[in-house]
């Protein structure tokens, strides 16, 4: 074994650029998918709480699909399957605008939404019904009561599980390499195959992933401290 561990070899010139590009793509994918996931997650939560059973079943089916089918399969379905269903004009547009990034974002965002709506629902359930009554008594309709009174409290309650979902989402962006998104893991593989410095390349990736994960956790803990509901 004459292996010499030399991280500097993968942190120079174009390799460093690849890591930086990979990191930027990973962050962009995380942020975009997170925003999509939160938006869809909140909408699903509002829809499933409406007093109309079939909508509830529909959301339940959505949640079960996204939680029980491997994420990689979902990503592949979006990349290889869904574009075929689109009208030609849209397909052409998507294909010429980084379709792999867009479709990975959609797949990751929709999967996150399934987890987020579950968290949000349990958060909403933990808020006493009297809060809803008080909001309605002032004259708010269902949507207003939800937006101004119930959701702001539920979101504060579910900050810890949402941080977890964010971490999972961040790590799961690495699956997007399967459809050729140039995110951090994809770029790391590239650096590896150009330099044969496997340990160095993945050591760098590992440190970057860890650093960002800790960053997300710290940010979450900070948000939780600042926004935590004082009930007593």
């Amino acid at each position: 074994m004459g292996y010499v561990f030399d991280p500097a070899a993968v942190l120079t010139g174009q390799y460093l650029d690849w890591f930086i590009w990979g990191l930027a793509t990973t962050i962009a994918l995380t942020v975009a998918a997170w925003l999509l996931g939160m938006t869809i997650g909140i909408i699903l939560t509002l829809v499933r709480m409406l007093p109309f059973r079939p909508l509830e079943w529909l959301v339940a089916a959505y949640v079960e699909y996204h939680r029980n089918v491997p994420l990689l399969v979902q990503i592949l379905v979006w990349y290889f399957g869904v574009p075929q269903l689109l009208p030609r004009a849209i397909r052409m547009w998507v294909n010429s605008h980084h379709s792999e990034f867009l479709l990975a974002m959609v797949a990751l965002g929709l999967a996150s939404a399934a987890y987020i709506t579950e968290d949000l629902r349990s958060g909403i359930r933990s808020i006493p019904k009297t809060q809803y009554e008080a909001a309605r008594s002032i004259g708010f309709n269902y949507l207003q009561a939800m937006s101004y009174v119930i959701l702001p409290q539920a979101l504060r309650i579910v900050i810890p599980p949402l941080i977890n979902q964010t971490l999972l989402l961040f790590k799961n962006t690495s699956l997007a390499m399967a459809i050729g998104v140039g995110e951090l893991t994809y770029r790391t593989r590239e650096v590896d195959s150009y330099t044969f410095k496997t340990f160095e390349a993945f050591a760098v990736a590992t440190i970057i992933y860890l650093a960002i994960s800790f960053g997300i956790m710290a940010l979450g803990a900070f948000a939780n401290r600042r926004l935590k509901l004082e009930l007593r």
Binding site: T130, A134, A135, R136, G139, N141, Q153
Partner: peptide, 20 residues
């Protein structure tokens, strides 16, 4: 009903202030 509720003030036993 939402308009009507604006004209009727309701005070609860458990206050029901919005804690946030």
């Amino acid at each position: 009903i939402n308009r009507l509720r604006q004209r009727v003030g309701f005070v609860f036993q458990a206050f029901n202030l919005f804690p946030h």
